[in-house]
Design a binder for these strands. Structure first.
Lengths: 256, 256
DNA sequence: TCTTGTGAACCGATTCACAGCT
DNA sequence: AGCTGTGAATCGGTTCACAAGA
């Protein structure tokens, strides 16, 4: 990595670990709840419990932001809410576009958590001309033709893709060409983007498959004598040759 | 962690790294696409590109499953599809329930990728009596009262929570009490579950906040002389005392 | 000759444990 | 006395680079 490394003398060097960044929203949510209950201060232990992490991790995370706590006391809730909000960039507002207003896109448009916390739905975009003009979540759906204009008119830098998998890459390309540099992808495809563009993926079926893996594991522990019979290299090859698995024909596995 | 450590003599020890498990669905998707195009074999390099990872990682991942490739040739697509499917537990089918049939729940119910790949929507459940009986995605919505019966009648072990945040924990408790041991949570809350229950979280607003963080970082690199003015401990304390941030009053940050 | 499979080095993140401050 | 902040140890995961094998 050849980042110009801002040579700061003694103070905290920029560069918060990615894992920490991913937890800041969690802390922020917990802190916001405390703030609403007018709790003035909170210890790392209490806050960690509320956020579902352990206290050492939380303290280390906060230490990357600066020394915002008070030894012997804890953290000032309001102050921390502000610091984390600022660190995450939530003190400014981010216009976002949602592309693909099917069931999921509509659900996202209606999702309340979207509007709060500095995010604002600037436009809903769909390729279906029949959708154009229809109001969804109080906004008229715009046609894909307008995509570039919408992005630049609103200074949109974050795009949400909720199209079918087949359309995702080309929508992505258009978003990027129009100036979007952060993408949240709900379509079950790998998107390729140029350097400098961030993509985050939310994939229902991947999550379910991960759960199924562990679920199967649990079931196996209870009643299987040997969880999976280990197979020798020879057996493996043989099975590969005649398209057979250890327990019968290879089943037709469904496409994504 | 006090897992009984199954002492297997020489053969591959059980225990696929979590990071690897999380990528198996990705490989499976890429392989399924190749399979549909009747591609017989694939090299680690090609498959890695299709799945959006690097080839060394992919080979290491596969090595945990066994020696399923052929040196100098690559991997047999059909065979690998089957092996990964089996490893993930997709050769059996998993009945799932979706609780909370609002916009999101309905979108999930309609999501095609759900039905394929061994997952079957056993029931849609909602607390609103007015919803009961209404068909969503071809299934009648059932009332929450029936939750326990539905779980046990259908042998459901995977539950999807798409309720508002406030209801999520109690729905979770009921699911777990009824026998569910894997939960996919779309509600923006930390769920607490007993040992042995897996929870995976999908959280739109967290993903957006992470993107915003990086987006802000990008913007800062272009035009800010010094990204964030470093603040001394004294200044920090002072700010905390009078509820002030470095650039004004602490703004009212929205709740989740 | 080509591509897999894997030790070994490396790197980031988590946990431990305690010094430092209130 | 109590709780934060952080070096040091540890762990899990990634990358490197090459030996093994088709």
């Amino acid at each position: 990595m050849a980042t110009g490394r801002t040579h700061r003398p003694a103070t905290r060097s920029r560069g918060i670990p990615e894992a920490t960044v991913a937890r800041l929203p969690l802390y922020l949510r917990a802190l916001t709840a405390l703030s609403e209950r007018s709790v003035p201060t909170v210890s790392s232990e209490e806050l960690a419990t509320a956020a579902g992490v352990n206290s050492a991790k939380l303290r280390k995370d906060f230490s990357y932001l600066g020394s915002y706590g008070t030894r012997g006391v804890g953290y000032d809730v309001e102050y921390l809410v502000y610091q984390i909000s600022r660190e995450l960039g939530l003190t400014q507002d981010w216009p976002v576009v949602i592309v693909g207003i099917g069931n999921l896109g509509a659900a996202l448009a209606n999702y309340g958590g979207f509007a709060s916390r500095g995010f604002r739905v600037a436009a809903l975009i769909d390729a279906d001309p029949a959708m154009a003009g229809k109001p969804v979540a109080g906004l008229p759906v715009r046609h894909t033709d307008e995509l570039e204009a919408i992005i630049s008119d609103n200074g949109v830098s974050i795009g949400v893709i909720a199209t079918p998998a087949g359309a995702a890459q080309q929508v992505c390309d258009r978003l990027v060409a129009a100036g979007v540099t952060s993408i949240l992808n709900f379509a079950p495809t790998v998107l390729s983007v140029p350097e400098g563009v961030d993509v985050r993926k939310v994939d229902l079926s991947i999550e379910l498959q991960i759960l199924a893996f562990h679920e199967q594991r649990k079931a196996g522990e209870e009643n299987t004598p040997s969880p999976v019979p280990p197979r020798s290299g020879a057996a493996v090859r043989a099975a590969a040759e005649n398209r057979k698995g250890p327990d019968g024909d290879v089943p037709a596995v469904m496409p994504a």
